[in-house]
Design a binder for these strands. Structure first.
Lengths: 126, 126
DNA sequence: CGGTATCCCTCGGGATACTG
DNA sequence: CAGTATCCCGAGGGATACCG
């Protein structure tokens, strides 16, 4: 992955940051963790649309990229807690800003998104 | 695309926003356009890693999502200018914040990204 | 100059099932 | 409870070549 690393070295922060935040649920994970949701099962309940496996993968990446840290309690039943690192913390306000922007512009967003896929509506069952 | 629209309706702004900002170069495009880069060719020069076709596609999406507007001058040689809409404008500070964060943490980012793909380095030629 | 048409191929991420 | 192993699919996006 990341085949053409060559270019990345003198790139703008936006590029670098994208590498790290790439992943469908990264923002959500960071946000929830930063707001006190630490257990994997809780996170999964907060983001029911995502498969557990995917969440785990993205959590692993976030951990490797040092935005979250993972604490494992070797007991039964097993217990795991995620938390933000310093860097992760410092990213929180930005994610919050994005989220709030989205909330504030929910109507707008739903409208313009709807434009793109009028066809998807037939979706029926759960 | 966007198969399971059903879920999106009562979702948080982060989800909605993601739908609209999804795309490898959207942030860059918005940022550059918001900073006065309006001609397609200029944008392409600013983002040389991206294929023209891809930029055009993402620009089209941004336009459809009403974050940028496109002005075509029917003259020869052809001339096109992109600019941000109100909504696009209001998004700029957030993108800026992300970019600045990335710049401020360039060393950190390069390090942690490097961790993930030590193997990619053999990349030789341009 | 600006844009589109093909072709292709990676890989993110969903479903399912199994292990400690 | 937490996590991994397979399997699979679609779309995002890169390369190349061609039009107005």
């Amino acid at each position: 992955m990341y085949e053409r690393k060559i270019a990345i070295d003198d790139q703008c922060g936006l590029d670098l940051l994208r590498e790290v935040l790439n992943g469908k649920w990264k923002f959500h994970l960071l946000w929830y963790i930063g707001n006190g949701v630490q257990r994997p099962s809780e996170l999964a309940r907060k983001i029911p649309e995502a498969a557990r496996r995917v969440l785990n993968m993205q959590l692993a990446q976030l951990e490797e990229h040092e935005l979250v840290s993972k604490k494992v309690y070797h007991q039964l039943p097993l217990k795991v807690e995620y938390s933000l690192t310093e860097k992760g913390q410092s990213l929180l306000p930005l994610i919050g800003a994005l989220g709030y922007w989205g909330d504030d512009n929910r109507d707008f967003l739903q409208r313009v998104i709807g434009k793109t896929n009028r066809f998807s509506s037939p979706a029926v069952a759960v």
